[in-house]
Design a protein around this nucleic acid. Structure first.
Lengths: 231, 231
DNA sequence: TCATTGTAAATTGTTGACAGTTTACAATAA
DNA sequence: TTATTGTAAACTGTCAACAATTTACAATGA
């Protein structure tokens, strides 16, 4: 026991716990992931191990280990003797990811519908209202986080963490498609109308309707993305 | 151009291509994966980096990189400062994996049913017959590979490689549950009756029936596994 | 006997160095 | 000009060594 006050003691404990869980590799991994998802490392660019290591103040070991993890997650790919490259999703791969994501969340909706409870429906309705508000105010940037929370809430309520993880793995991967981040324009209002259909089907406790509304929402989102990309 | 015969030339080219695609890391990864899936490295055991490296005649670098990949694949987990451990699936996690797998392949069946063609149905029927044969002869060990090919064929026919990959990721992960590998006894005949129901639903081109038969098959397999484990 | 402390061995985390391959580019020839 | 060859620089693949942490275990005391 040290002589410092209890509050500081807890601080030290927390810092140690943090230190233990955060190896250099995991920090580097999160940083590369951030660079990729925020577009600072564009698809198809090579990841220079040495310069990245210097930039982060570490050696190449942790960088390479982090890259292996990100490779398995599908964010980067390894070309032997040539290095790691940020992955670029083809249109075919993007379509496949969308369909797989549709399979996942439609199943979640199907299992959730028969057992959903009133407070859960209220939470979803609350998120719907928030999205309507930001759409009507034209606050485009704030829609996405609420949208994300809406879908994640449904996955949480479905109660299958593995299903939820798979969904997020696919969502992360989809950032690697060219046409991501294009302005959605008026589509946000359309998207939220689909959200209402989803909540309606869940409220009616109709498994098939929930399955269809969730699947259709993802696939219609795919159509919007493909249309935006072809313009 | 070298002066060696063409046949040798091709050999050299192949070897170079092989050499290029097989970094030490990928070889080590496959070897650890084999050790785990064949039960030579049991769940919850620590992976000693140095001894494994010596055993394979490489240094710790490639071993650690391979472990990061396998960690991302969910086969091993990393405890900071304590090393890599073969993952052990809890019953809850196994159930979640089964349900996620059901979601995946049910969706594949649903999309395949309306568009399946006669030669594809014939291939599936051929596999059914082969499984019936080995079951009637009591050749337990040969059932599994055909069973695997049956499901994989359906996923291939569905035409979504990402869906197929996710399915196999989940299947691989399920080897980490305690009660795997218990003798299935008479259940193989039951399993193959379910296979016939699947092919029937596909042949009728009924998307909903295909979805249900595929989902039920995976979930009934889960029940069999849970029952076997509780005995 | 049992719990506690201290020390050595084992093991992981990280680094820097070297070998082999790829890439960039200047020199040469058609 | 364009294609080809040769050379140097840059970079990846791999290894061995050192630092930091954990583990094993003997020594000590209640």
């Amino acid at each position: 026991m040290s002589s410092v006050p209890a509050s500081d003691d807890k601080n030290v404990t927390d810092q140690l716990a943090l230190r233990r869980s955060q190896s250099l590799t995991s920090i580097v991994q999160l940083e590369i992931e951030r660079l990729i998802l925020q577009g600072e490392l564009a698809p198809d660019t090579r990841i220079n191990e040495l310069s990245l290591a210097n930039q982060l103040g570490v050696s190449r070991g942790p960088v390479r280990e982090a890259c292996r993890t990100l490779q398995a997650l599908g964010l980067i790919e390894s070309k032997p003797n040539r290095g790691f490259f940020v992955r670029l999703l083809t249109t075919k791969e993007a379509i496949e990811a969308y369909n797989t994501r549709a399979a996942i969340i439609a199943y979640a909706g199907m299992t959730l519908a028969p057992v959903i409870e009133q407070p859960q429906l209220e939470l979803l309705n609350h998120l719907l209202d928030k999205m309507d508000t930001v759409v009507s105010r034209g606050e485009v940037g704030t829609y996405d986080p609420i949208n994300l929370e809406f879908h994640d809430s449904i996955l949480r309520m479905a109660g299958n963490e593995r299903l939820r993880q798979t969904y997020h793995d696919l969502l992360r991967e989809q950032h690697l498609f060219r046409h991501r981040g294009l302005s959605d324009g008026d589509n946000l209002a359309v998207s939220n109308r689909e959200h209402r259909l989803i909540v309606d089907s869940l409220a009616s406790k109709d498994a098939n309707a929930a399955f269809n509304s969730m699947r259709d929402h993802v696939l219609l989102g795919m159509q919007r993305m493909l249309n935006a990309g072809s313009q």
